[in-house]
Each structure stands twice: as structure tokens, then as C-alpha cells.
Amino acid sequence: MPHPTPHSADTDIAVSVQGVRKQFGELVAVNDLDIDIRAGEFFSMLGPSGSGKTTVLRMIAGFEEPTAGKILLHGADVTKSAPFDREVNTVFQDYALFPHLTIAENVAYGLKVRGIGKAERAARVAAALEQVQLAHLGTRRPSQLSGGQRQRIALARALILRPQVLLLDEPLGALDKQLREQMQFELKQIQREVGITFVFVTHDQEEALTLSDRVAVFNGGKIEQVGSPREVYEFPQTEFVARFLGVTNFLSGAHAERILGESGAHSVRPERVELVDPTAPLSADAIAVPGTVVETVYAGAHTRYLVETESGLRFISERQNTELPSDSPSVRRGDAVSLRFARAHAVAVPSLPAAAAAAA
């Protein structure tokens, strides 16, 4: 599925972005974007810096107005509505907590602004803090919390207002790797519990694959592909998607002809490429490519090998370290090897239609 699907007649669409374009002077940040986000799903917008994903999030939130096109929330046109008139809430990377307020007061702030009574505020704050497992920290100030705890407080403050859609702008970006991975699972759990539509912006491919029901891959102000994490990783529809989502061996032109015996572009993921002795027998459905190991990278859970083929193409192979180092075969730089992968694992990557390629 190389491009977003047409707008669904289904009323269970939380966010509908229709023909949206955003221009800042001469710069086109978002170009004729169409996407429907389903109610209750965890939807990620993934792409490099400058790809347009954060601009789209800000337009959904109401912080930016589209140059052209419409934005609908549960069927209602909110294109020109102010942020406070939309049933959405945003969690930012810097959390934006009030340093002079306690944690409980931070979480209660939105309810207080809306005129919710003191007793109801207290009950809802207690429930929200319990949900993010921080009920015991209600009297502390933000400066007394860790980064992960502040992230959870920002989430509780947004969820307590019971928005139809929660927008998250790289909320885990300031956390260290271990805490970031822990918070990914917690965030997904919370989303499932509350059942609110989450629209999540990230440039981290692993994060998008871990969290999402569906992922939209952005590039140059357009969406190149929308699908489940498995679909966009296993069946990339453009070269950009194949290369941006993880690591891949991209074969096209003369290399595809020489190795696969067919034209077109193909993606072969490194974990599907095995290094074997060149004299090992070849199975019927396997592709064999002779080469020389030029680099090895040990990364704990796996080892990555860079192999140069006889034609000068560089291939990456990745092996899970399932055995103790003393029990696993040793492959060193300079070794002659045979790259082996199943023909079916060379996934054809369709070309962009001419019109889309010209616009990208």
C-alpha cells in the first residue's frame, strides 16, 4: 500500500486529514496530504527531521492552520477552530509542567481551568495518578522527579481531560535508551486501557514499530506508505521506506540482474542473509553471492557483518548471538564467504508513480 487510502465513509474515523497543504513562505512543509486515523488506534507518524510529521500534528492540534485542505475530528470540521475548541490534547517532548505546582496540582490544572469542582478534581487526579503508577508522588514538585516520572505526569495531565484524541510529539525523545524502551511498553499499555486514539510523532523507527497499530512513513511533506508495522517493514513500497525502516540490502539495476536474474528493485533484510562457507551445498530456492568480509560489528544481541561482493556491491548480514562466544563460529575480516538468502526474501519494491515521484 504505497499511498494513503481514500477517505472512508466509516463514522469510526477519529481524525481525517483531507487534501491538506501547509506552506511557510516558499517552503512547502506538507503537500496535499490525505489520511484517515481510526478511533482507538495507536497511529504513528514516522520520518526524518523536516519531513512534515510535526507540522501535521500541529495542524491537528490547532497550533497551525492549513494553507489548503480540511481537518475533521470525528466528522466535525475543525480546520479553523482554536486549539481549546478541539477535543484533543498534546504531550510535548519537554513535558511543559509547571515547576511551582505539585504533581497533583499539575495534573489537576486543566480541570481547574474548566471549572470542575474541587471534590471531583481530587477524585479524578487520584485516579489519573494511580493509572500512571505515581499516586505516592502527588505532593512532590516536577524538579524532584526523574525524566520518566515527569513523562508519566505529562501523560496523566493530558488524559485527565478525556480528549477524543491524544497527540504526542516525540514525548520519549529526552529519555535514555533503557527508560525509553520501558516507557514504550507502558505507553502502549495505557493506550489500550483508556481506548483513546493516540497520534504519535517520532523519528525513531524501532519506537514506531514497537508502539503502533499503523505507521505512516513521511518524506518530503508527503506520506510514502501507511500500514501495520509488519507491512511497512516486510513489504516496503518505495526505496525510501525500505532504507529508512531499519537496515536493508537494496538491489536494483545491474546488481539485481546479476544476483537475482531479474530487473526491478528489491529489498533484502540483513537478518535474512546468512554467511556460510563458500563450499557449502546450495539449496534449491537459495541465492548465493560470493564475497569477502570487510567489517564485523558486535552489538550484544547480534553481530553485523559487512561483505563486499565480487562486483563491488556491499551487503550486510546480521546474526543473532544465540550461543556463547566460545561456541559460535568465528568470522573475521578478510574471510571469503558465501552470502545465502531465500529468493522469496528478496522483496520487490514497486516504483513510485510518475506523478508522485515528480511531486516528492
Rank of each mutant, 00 (worst) to 15 (best):
T248M: 06
F63D: 11
V276C: 13
D213S: 08
P353G: 09
D34M: 07
Q164V: 08
D277V: 02
G173C: 01
G148L: 07
A14I: 00
V56S: 12
P236R: 06
L27G: 02
A299N: 14
I71R: 00
E271T: 03
M45T: 02
I103W: 05
T139D: 15
A76H: 10
F198I: 04
V91D: 07
L73Q: 02
R150N: 09
K80Y: 07
A254P: 06
A256Q: 00
V125H: 03
Q164D: 15
R157L: 04
V331I: 14
R243M: 01
I103E: 07
V56I: 07
P83M: 11
E186V: 00
L155C: 10
A128M: 09
E65K: 13
L282I: 13
S283K: 11
S338L: 15
R58M: 12
R192Y: 14
N249Q: 03
R180T: 12
T90R: 15
E170P: 00
Y109M: 03
F43T: 05
I153R: 06
S311M: 15
M183H: 15
G227T: 11
T296K: 14
P229F: 03
S44R: 11
R258W: 04
P350S: 04
K112G: 08
Q144K: 11
A280C: 02
M45S: 03
K222Y: 00
R272G: 03
G40T: 01
A360L: 14
T248D: 06
A286G: 02
Y95N: 12
T67A: 12
V201N: 01
Y109R: 09
F250S: 05
P353Q: 13
M45K: 04
S328L: 14
P281E: 13
Q178F: 06
L27A: 15
K80G: 09
H203W: 04
T202R: 11
L73M: 04
S8H: 05
S81R: 15
